[in-house]
Design a protein around this nucleic acid. Structure first.
Length: 287
DNA sequence: AACTACTCCTGGAGGC
DNA sequence: TGCCTCCAGGAGTAGT
């Protein structure tokens, strides 16, 4: 499930290879994924040059010459691969199909070809992903409409800022609040579970109940989870089951496994309709 | 304000 | 082996 680290990982790959490249062909095989501004078509990208590869929250932002921007949301199962003419491939996002599987896959919905023979492929098994084609000048307004909170990866985010954001939903349950992109942008189900575990906070705690120290621990936990995710190029979770690498993730997708801190079996429960993993000893249920 | 349920969709896993 | 059901979840929306 692509969250901030998965999107940031692929953004860094693309930033290294795409700027300066000219589009020679675009093929969209699943038209419903695209929402284009009136009068715009993906074919408008042909002949344009990639100017920049950005990210806001879980959105990947591709800026092209000719006042064109492609905004991509990978949702649950989106995957982006860049393949060079010699077949070298870098992938990010959902790990199904496998990153080394033959491409295009039957669920590869978008292929963009560049003047060096490289291709950018968007594959999405569940077809929830979204592509938006807008004028570059419209991107700030598009992002403003989303009303995103501070980026979870922003080093300038302080415990005080996080506390202020959390207070906007002071009496709601902590986990759904952290999943709310207008509170803090970029977290999804996996990283919220990991951050709460790290901070020893039960997902049913409320923001109002958090001490300043607990909020600071939560921010540390968010950063710790994101850092490990980035270092691994994203956590590999397939059908809710984790494949831990170097001990991460520590609880998400690991029901029954021993808590890395105390050995108590990790418990799976549901919070706000989301599968939720926690250590019942390290993260005591609120009264 | 907060919460639940439903929607989009496919494929992997488990039961029998 | 194979059919069936359940489940995964980002995010929007509708209803309580």
């Amino acid at each position: 499930m692509p969250e901030l680290p998965e999107v940031e990982t692929i953004r860094r790959h693309l930033e290294a290879v795409l700027p300066g490249r000219r589009v020679t062909a675009v093929e969209l095989r699943l038209p419903k994924l695209l929402r284009a501004e009136p009068g715009r078509a993906l074919s408008d990208l042909v002949g344009q040059v990639v100017l920049a590869v950005g990210r806001r929250a879980k959105l990947l932002l591709l800026d092209f010459s000719g006042d064109q921007s492609l905004v991509i949301h990978l949702k649950l199962t989106g995957q982006i691969c860049h393949q060079t003419v010699s077949g070298e491939r870098r992938c990010g996002g959902h790990p199904v199909p496998a990153f080394d599987a033959p491409l295009p896959h039957k669920s590869t919905h978008l292929t963009v070809t560049f003047d060096d023979g490289g291709t950018l492929l968007l594959t999405d098994i569940r077809q929830f992903g979204q592509l938006r084609l807008v004028s570059s000048g419209a991107v700030p307004a598009l992002l403003a409409d989303e009303n995103y909170g501070p980026d979870a990866f922003d080093p300038a985010l302080t415990p005080g800022m996080l506390a202020a954001q959390l207070r906007r939903r002071a009496n709601a349950r902590l986990k759904p609040v952290l999943l709310d992109q207008t509170v803090i942008a970029g977290l999804g189900n996996i990283y919220v579970d990991e951050a709460l575990y790290s901070a020893r906070l039960h997902p049913l705690r409320t923001p109002a109940s958090l001490s300043a120290d607990e909020t600071a621990c939560l921010l540390d936990g968010i950063r710790d989870a994101l850092d490990h995710g980035l270092r691994q190029g994203g956590f590999t979770i397939v059908n809710g089951r984790a494949r831990p690498l170097d001990g991460y993730p520590r609880v998400h997708g690991l029901a029954g496994a021993p808590c890395p801190r105390c050995g108590t079996p990790v418990v799976k429960t549901t919070v706000g309709g989301r599968g939720t993993y926690l250590c019942p000893r390290c993260q005591p249920t609120p009264a």
